[in-house]
C-alpha cells in the first residue's frame, strides 16, 4: 500500500467523524508534494492529525505520523512515545530519505519534551526544526521562516479551559453519581443537591473561574468555590422545616465541612489538565491539602450522622 492509498484511507475514515481515534502511523502525502516539500511530524491521534491537516490546506507537504498509541503530541512526548527512538525508527521504516531530498523534519514544539534534536540528526541525518506550538500558526511560520514568541508560548485561556469541562465532567461523574446517591439515602434531597452542585462547581465552575478565584493553590481555590456551595446548602438546610433545630444545625455544619472537600479534590485533579503546573508543585500541593480534604469530608460525615443524636422534632 502506498502512502497515497493510506491518505485516501484516512480521508475516508475522517469522512465518518470519530469512527477511529487512531491514525495508522506512517508517511502521508498532502496535496502534490515533491522531494523539496516540507515534512511535518505528528501523533497518531485523530485530533492532532486533523489540526495539522487542517492547517496545511493548500500546502503540498508530507506528514510523518508517529505511533503514540492514540495520544496527543504533548502528553505522548511527556511519556516518551512521541520521542527520539520512535521518530528515528519511523524515518527509517518509511524510507523518508528516499522519498524526499530535504533533510529536515518539522516537529511540533511541544514534541521537544520527548525529541532530542541532535540525537535524531546523529542517527538519521535529518535535522529537527521545532515548529510552532499550535498547528494553526504553521502557514505564518513557513512564510516567515521562523516562529514568533507568541507561536512558541503555550496559553490556557477561557476557551482552552472551557473545552475541558466535558472531559472533566465525564471523569468525575461516576464517583459523583455514587456520592449523590449516598447523600440522598443517608440524608435527603438537600444533601444530594449539595453534593451534585459541589461536583459541578469542581469540574465546570473551577475551570471557568480559575484565574479569578483569589488564592494561589488549586486546592484552596476549590475550598472557596466549594465553600460557597456548602454555605448555600447549609442555608437551605436551616430554612427547611425538616427536623429539629439541632438536626438542622448539624446538617448545615456537615455541608460546610464536607462539600468543599469534593470541589477541592476535583480542582486539585485539574492540575493534570493545565498547561503550566509542575510535578514538584503538584506533589507539594497534594501532600499539603489531601489530608485536609480527607479530614473535612470525614468530619462532615460524622457530624451529619450525629444529627440523629439530637432527637426528633417535637410537637
Amino acid at each position: 500500500m502506498t502512502a497515497r492509498d493510506r491518505l485516501d484511507h484516512v480521508l475516508a475514515r475522517l469522512g465518518v467523524r470519530r469512527s477511529g481515534w487512531r491514525i495508522r502511523p506512517g508517511l502521508y502525502r498532502l496535496g502534490e508534494p515533491g522531494p523539496e516539500s516540507p515534512v511535518f511530524v505528528s501523533a497518531n491521534y485523530t485530533l492532532s492529525f486533523d489540526a495539522l491537516r487542517g492547517a496545511l490546506q493548500g500546502i503540498d507537504s508530507y506528514i510523518l505520523v508517529l505511533d503514540t498509541f492514540g495520544i496527543n503530541v504533548w502528553c505522548a512526548a511527556g511519556k516518551g512515545s512521541f520521542g527520539t527512538d520512535e521518530l528515528v525508527s519511523r524515518i527509517e521504516q518509511t524510507r523518508l530519505a528516499d522519498e524526499v531530498s530535504t533533510r529536515t523534519v518539522i516537529v511540533p514544539q511541544l514534541g521537544a519534551t520527548g525529541v532530542c534534536a541532535r540525537e535524531v540528526l546523529r542517527r538519521t541525518g535529518f535535522k529537527v526544526r521545532f515548529g510552532p506550538v499550535r498547528a494553526v500558526d504553521i502557514p505564518a511560520f513557513l512564510e516567515a521562516g521562523e516562529a514568533t514568541e507568541d507561536m512558541r508560548r503555550v496559553t490556557f485561556n477561557l476557551k482552552d479551559r472551557a473545552v475541558l469541562i466535558p472531559v472533566e465532567g465525564k471523569i468525575a461523574s461516576p464517583i459523583l453519581a455514587g456520592l449523590t446517591l449516598g447523600a440522598y439515602l443517608a440524608d435527603g434531597p438537600v444533601a444530594a443537591a449539595g453534593v451534585g452542585a459541589a461536583g459541578v462547581a469542581g469540574f465546570a465552575g473551577f475551570p471557568l473561574l480559575m484565574p479569578w478565584i483569589p488564592t494561589e493553590d488549586f486546592s484552596t481555590k476549590g475550598f472557596l468555590l466549594g465553600g460557597a456551595v456548602g454555605l448555600a446548602a447549609a442555608g437551605a438546610a436551616l430554612l427547611s422545616g425538616d427536623g429539629s433545630a439541632g438536626q438542622r444545625a448539624a446538617r448545615a455544619v456537615s455541608y460546610v465541612l464536607a462539600l468543599p472537600a469534593i470541589t477541592s479534590f476535583i480542582a486539585l485533579n485539574f492540575t493534570g489538565s493545565t498547561t503550566f503546573t509542575s510535578p514538584t508543585g503538584v506533589k507539594r500541593e497534594m501532600n499539603r491539602y489531601i489530608p485536609v480534604m480527607a479530614a473535612m469530608a470525614a468530619s462532615g460525615i460524622l457530624v451529619n450522622g450525629a444529627r440523629h443524636l439530637f432527637g426528633r422534632k417535637r410537637g
Binding site: G78, T113, T271, T277, P279, V282, K283
Partner: peptide, 12 residues
C-alpha cells in the same frame, strides 16, 4: 530539571 508526569490523579 526533574521532569515527570504532572497529573495529580496519576500521582495518587
Amino acid at each position: 530539571v526533574d521532569s515527570d508526569v504532572g497529573c495529580a490523579s496519576a500521582m495518587i
